[in-house]
Design a protein around this nucleic acid. Structure first.
Length: 469
DNA sequence: AAATGTGTCAACCGCGCGCTC
DNA sequence: CGAGCGCGCGGTTGACACATT
């Protein structure tokens, strides 16, 4: 792909301000250019970057000058790799404020937002490739209360999603009701319910399967079904598909629910919201990171997820693995070691993969739905039964500390369902994912009858895609 | 040794915000 | 009040170096 105007070379000044049709240079800066800029700032101070081009021989736009100064020329810049302390700071800050690179930079003297951003993206890629959660377990423990924390530990966290952004996206999508062709959910109630959700509500996924065509199934947040899909607000269930009257007959999917923010077809106002972190990889392309959940194992069997999805941590007594898993610091250095260990366990993992053991209870629900149609009560009955135990955790989690209570105002990380990065293990080409209508259920491993297991040590590794070499 | 994959860095872009007129 | 402008932020991309196959 050709870069925007190309990197290097020259281009017209089509950017902000000025209106000059000066030919501006792009690409790497030369030492001479640096010297000119340095001299200018020395004389005139920072700011008024567009004046640089006017008052010097530099043929660079103001933006470029500002960037060069901020990232390279400004005094007291710290170069070199991040120290472990800095890494911890970044991870912690990211957990608290999300992708606010500039704000993070203020906490890391001498570091630039660009550096931090690059570091984070690299780290993110590595951890996702390795099937590791974005945040270390220790950090989760600061946000998730007490003993029920364990139920969350096997859910990898979103790289950038914040609860606030989800709500914003939904609101943005729903607010553009004037356009006839909006695919997003136009029913305000489906947005309102989200405002009443806790982050955990959004984690609480309910399998939804089309028995006529199992490949057409998906999982939806419990709150969506409980509160969003009632016949009274336009939803209907026909031929194994969910429909909404406002969606022009299109079957329901995450993006037309307004839960995903692909620039198109959802309203453009939501394009810089990043709930993609919740529903898939936020690559910025218009490919909807699908909620596809099928995981192809190396032997081509399909499984829908369970505590043993990874198959790597299930071998009891595997001290080496346990050690690494517990030492999940989230730092890059540690990650390398973690990845190595995972790799060593790859072979063992193959045989431990098994199908989800909660399929039976899910089947019950689907039969009921297919027989009686989807109704609030049907869904609620099933879900309430299925989630009795989990609700306890939710209740517990709803007693949140102040950090979590500020979620609506201050972006915070939101856990994402375990199908989040499904496919990364054997499909690194995210853009190849099918759009949202191709959705295959990942049935959460909810074990209502197995309270003990639920509370047992669930290592964060146990629900991750395997690392394939 | 060549091909491919991955990580890092540096730069560009679009967008939004705040200020001024 | 709206347009124009300057600026900053976050997302994305390309080049290059290095590692792996």
């Amino acid at each position: 792909m050709v870069s925007h105007g190309g990197r290097g070379g020259i281009s017209n000044n089509s950017g902000e301000g000025g209106g000059l049709h000066m030919v501006l240079k792009k690409g790497p800066w030369t030492a001479a250019e640096d010297a000119v800029l340095l001299e200018y700032v020395k004389r005139h101070g920072e700011g008024n970057w567009n004046a640089v081009q006017k008052n010097t021989s530099l043929q660079r736009c103001g933006k470029s000058c500002r960037l060069r100064w901020a990232n390279h020329l400004r005094p007291f810049l710290k170069k070199g790799p991040f120290t472990p302390e800095e890494e911890k700071t970044i991870i912690d800050l990211h957990a608290k404020i999300g992708n606010k690179w500039a704000r993070m930079a203020t906490q890391l003297p001498g570091r630039t937002d660009n550096e931090i951003k690059n570091y984070w993206n690299t780290r993110l890629k590595r951890r996702q490739r390795a099937g590791l959660p974005v945040y270390p377990v220790e950090l989760l423990q600061q946000y998730n209360h007490r003993h029920h924390l364990k139920t969350l530990q096997n859910i990898p966290l979103s790289p950038s999603c914040s609860f606030a952004s989800i709500i914003s996206a939904a609101a943005a999508a729903s607010s553009s009701t004037s356009h006839q062709n909006q695919y997003c959910c136009q029913n305000q109630s489906s947005v309102n319910f989200m405002k009443n959700c806790t982050p955990l509500d959004l984690l609480d996924y309910t399998p939804y399967r089309d028995n006529m065509n199992p490949s057409n199934s998906f999982s939806l947040p419990r709150q969506v079904i409980n509160n969003g899909m009632t016949s009274g607000n336009g939803f209907s269930y026909q031929n194994g598909q969910l429909f909404h009257q406002a969606l022009s007959g299109k079957s329901l999917s995450f993006d037309n629910l307004g839960l995903n923010s692909g620039p198109d077809p959802v309203s453009s106002s939501a394009t810089n919201i990043d709930p993609v972190g919740l529903f898939g990889m936020g690559t910025g392309n218009n490919e909807l990171s699908s909620i596809q959940n099928t995981v192809q194992t190396s032997n081509n069997s399909v499984y829908t997820g369970s505590d043993d999805v990874m198959g790597v941590a299930s071998s009891e007594g595997d001290e080496e693995y346990d050690k690494v898993a517990r030492g999940n610091s989230g730092l890059l250095g540690d990650l390398l070691e973690e990845s190595q260990t995972i790799k060593r366990h790859k072979d063992n993992s193959e045989k431990n993969i098994k199908a989800a053991d909660d399929q039976v209870s899910a089947d019950t629900f689907f039969k009921d739905v297919n027989t009686n149609g989807l109704s609030n009560s049907t869904g609620s009955a099933f879900i309430s039964g299925m989630n009795d135990k989990k609700d306890e955790a939710i209740e517990e989690m709803n007693i949140m500390d102040e950090d979590l209570l500020r979620l609506l105002d201050c972006p915070s990380p939101v856990c994402i369902p375990d199908w989040y990065d499904v496919g990364s293990s054997n499909n690194s080409n995210y853009s190849s994912r099918e759009p949202s209508n191709v959705t295959i259920a990942h049935v959460p491993n909810i074990k209502p009858d197995d309270d003990d297991d639920w509370d047992e040590d669930i290592c964060c590794w146990t629900n991750m895609p395997r690392v394939l070499s």
